[in-house]
Amino acid sequence: MKKILLLSAEVPPYTIWAEVLTQKGYRVEIFPEIQEAGERVFFSLPDMILVSEGLHPELVKDLIFALKCDLSLASLPILLIVDPEKLPRIDWHEYFVDDFICEGASSEEVISRVKLALLRAERLADNNPLTGLPGNTSILRKIEEVIHDDGEWAVGYVDLDNFKPFNDAYGFSRGDEVIRMLARLLVNTVEFYAGPKGFVGHIGGDDFVFIVPLDVADKVAQEVIQKFDQLVLNFVDPEDRERGCLLTTDRQGVLCRIPWPSVSIAIVPVWAGRFKHYGEVAAVAAQLKHYVKKVPGSTYLIDRRKEERP
């Protein structure tokens, strides 16, 4: 159940808003005292805050700033309730809020604004800024979900080989392009073979995770590898492509010939009862990665040990 803090006087229309939101399945608490609410917020985070500007203009501004900026809770949705007559004078630069509700708003409008703000937060909260893909929180949640599912799934751990020297040779922005390319490639391939059942997350840097039904895992991995090797050429300078490698200097100042990035994929099959915890999945993936990394070029390995299977 989503928890909403309503910081306002305990009078209509706020009490009515609280009532209709409760009917819609939200847990609503009204706090007429902003200081008390502040403490409450810091120690037990709600899913959303509705705060009335008129309650205490200065403190409201401070509280919002503290939450959004100091605690980096940018993903916590905050909606400011304002007197419509004040709107022309409000400088939105001073308020780090996600939306506003006018004091005279109907119950329907309040419900819609709340729903929308929560949806927006869900979409944005954990997403990687470079690729827009879900990050670690969502990845963990998704892995936990398939571990306890009855179906047979595959969790693929994807990363790049020789990415650092590539970054060193061409600079970070070219590196970012390759990361975005890999992200788009994973999303489209997973979408093609698994449709809405599939999932792609971005752990960070050049590390990605995908989750697909087990029976398409090989196909996804093969296609990602084949397409990546083809696409990466677009990001290598023509001179280096002709030479067949990148030239960089290592820490000793010695000139090295380095191949351009390739992709490694370790696939862990998951079925009901195989794992209890997502950490076990990652551990198996780490073992596989150890072998995958020894093979030069793009490659994938799927854990075929099935003896534990019921």
Partner: peptide
């Protein structure tokens, strides 16, 4: 917006990156 300025020169590569939708 897609972030591959002046990189992609063939339709087949473009489709892989843009996706079916």
């Amino acid at each position: 917006f897609y972030g591959f300025p002046r990189r992609i020169s063939t339709v087949s590569n473009a489709i892989v990156l843009l996706g079916f939708n």
